[in-house]
Computed example of a mutant assay.
Amino acid sequence: MYDIFLLGSGILFAVGLFYFFAPPKGINPAYGYRTPSSTKNDKNWEVANTWASRLFLGVSVLMCVLLYINQDLKFMDSDDLFIFSFLGGIALIFAVVELKLWHMNKE
């Protein structure tokens, strides 16, 4: 029942760890946080991947906390909670990183 939830948060955690300990060196087509704003220049690339790695780790921990709380309170069906937290977490990561890049380029 909660296997998919743990798998989803585990994937996000693994991506975050990989980005944190092996950040992509320079803009490349292989891996990294790739959006038009992050590939605009090397500074954007570095900032975007630094923030994304930390946010992936944070979202994965938040997903585990939500799972733990939901086991006791049953405020949401586990499948709905997984979809909400996984997709919401990914959306949050993109929103925060893109906002950071926008503010950085605005200055």
Rank of each mutant, 00 (worst) to 15 (best):
56 F>V: 05
23 P>V: 01
92 L>A: 15
51 W>A: 13
27 I>Y: 00
107 E>C: 01
52 A>C: 07
71 Q>I: 04
10 G>I: 10
62 L>Q: 06
99 L>P: 01
64 C>V: 15
37 S>L: 15
81 L>P: 11
21 F>L: 08
80 D>V: 13
73 L>E: 13
38 S>V: 07
48 A>H: 03
44 N>F: 03
56 F>K: 09
82 F>G: 00
60 S>F: 09
58 G>D: 08
91 A>Q: 13
67 L>A: 15
56 F>S: 05
1 M>I: 02
65 V>S: 08
72 D>W: 14
43 K>D: 15
14 A>M: 10
62 L>E: 04
65 V>K: 02
55 L>C: 05
55 L>Y: 09
18 F>W: 08
15 V>E: 03
87 L>C: 15
25 K>D: 12
29 P>T: 04
78 S>Y: 13
25 K>A: 12
5 F>I: 07
36 P>Y: 10
105 N>C: 02
79 D>K: 14
89 G>D: 06
37 S>Q: 13
106 K>Y: 14
42 D>N: 11
19 Y>R: 02
99 L>C: 12
89 G>I: 06
89 G>V: 03
4 I>N: 08
4 I>L: 15
52 A>R: 02
5 F>E: 11
3 D>I: 15
34 R>A: 10
1 M>E: 08
78 S>F: 13
64 C>N: 13
29 P>F: 09
6 L>K: 08
88 G>H: 13
28 N>M: 09
